[in-house]
Nucleic acid binder design. Structure first.
Lengths: 169, 169
DNA sequence: AGATCACTGTACAAATTGTCCAGTGAAATC
DNA sequence: GATTTCACTGGACAATTTGTACAGTGATCT
């Protein structure tokens, strides 16, 4: 037995072995290529090739350090829906990007609005951050809500697991 | 010169060297300890100790692989504000967590609501996912908006950079 | 039938890791 | 002021891993 990549020749960019590899690295990201090959029961070169290809395809973009902002003192996470003046998205985004506490901005459907994720050290600090955002030119209205808890932290696992064993749904 | 950690003895959990190290790893996550020490101009043991301590403190939680869901076929990202029946948060969250496409859930202030981030392969697929969410027991109302673009992708850099060089604001 | 592709298994030099240790300032403690 | 503690330096060593290359083998595509 040599080649056993019986992927469903679908246009999927990630086959079963890829998924297994990514799951493995999700659980233990510091594993080396050699160790991965052992755990997966494939040759080292295969793991290496897979990783290279995943990277080429743009699926795997890297292994950035995961930081717990809470442990860094930023215990508060908040979301904001920002209404802006028409046609000013680029400028507003630039303004938002200049605020350190702004960790993520999306342009969304709805009212040509922006959706912002931000962090702060305390309620008072959040106030300050919010004021900052409001101060960005062309920001019309800001609706903020604080994250009280995070029942489902950012995850990709289920998507990968579905590929691994062709699970349901 | 031996010890030069002139951090501002603030209650900060991350000093300048930590920040530099984390920034370095943010840019080139696959760097080894040795290479980091060279780039930072410190001894290898120092880098090792810093990483260990950052991990102990819970600041550095790991190096998970970063996947581009778009490249995996999930080209759509959407956000949803979910209104639920009072006192049913746990159950609803469980239901949401069971849906693979649900990548993140936060409980937020506002109306005891949930905030959901999800992905889908297409508009039709999104429809399916939304239907799924609506089908979760005790979900009362769902307000969905699609992410059209992401002007500021998830980032932590600015927060680290502020520590590195005591920048403004 | 022939070409291509992915994977296996092996090999070897170079680099990195995991550890340990002695020495040195700086800062905190007595 | 003396002492202890702490973080960092710099060096050393064995064990492991990486980068790379290459021949062999099925399966799939043309």
């Amino acid at each position: 037995m040599t080649n056993d990549q019986q992927s469903e020749h679908s246009d999927q960019t990630v086959d079963e072995l890829d998924a297994k590899l990514l799951l493995l690295l999700t659980d233990e990201p510091r594993l080396g290529v050699l160790e991965c090959s052992r755990r997966l029961g494939v040759a080292r070169g295969t793991v290496q090739a897979r990783l290279d290809r995943l990277t080429e395809r743009g699926v795997l973009t890297g292994f950035p350090p995961a930081l717990d902002l809470g442990a860094m003192g930023y215990g508060l996470t908040a979301f904001a829906v920002v209404e802006i003046a028409q046609g000013r998205r680029a400028e507003v985004c630039e303004g938002l990007a200049a605020i350190s506490e702004v960790c993520e901005v999306h342009a969304t459907t709805g009212q040509g609005d922006l959706f912002v994720r931000m962090v702060a050290r305390s309620n008072a600090d959040l106030q300050r951050v919010v004021d900052h955002i409001v101060d960005v030119p062309h920001v019309r209205r800001l609706s903020t809500s604080i994250a009280l808890s995070t029942p489902v932290p950012p995850r990709v696992r289920p998507l990968l697991e579905r590929v691994k064993g062709r699970s349901p749904r």
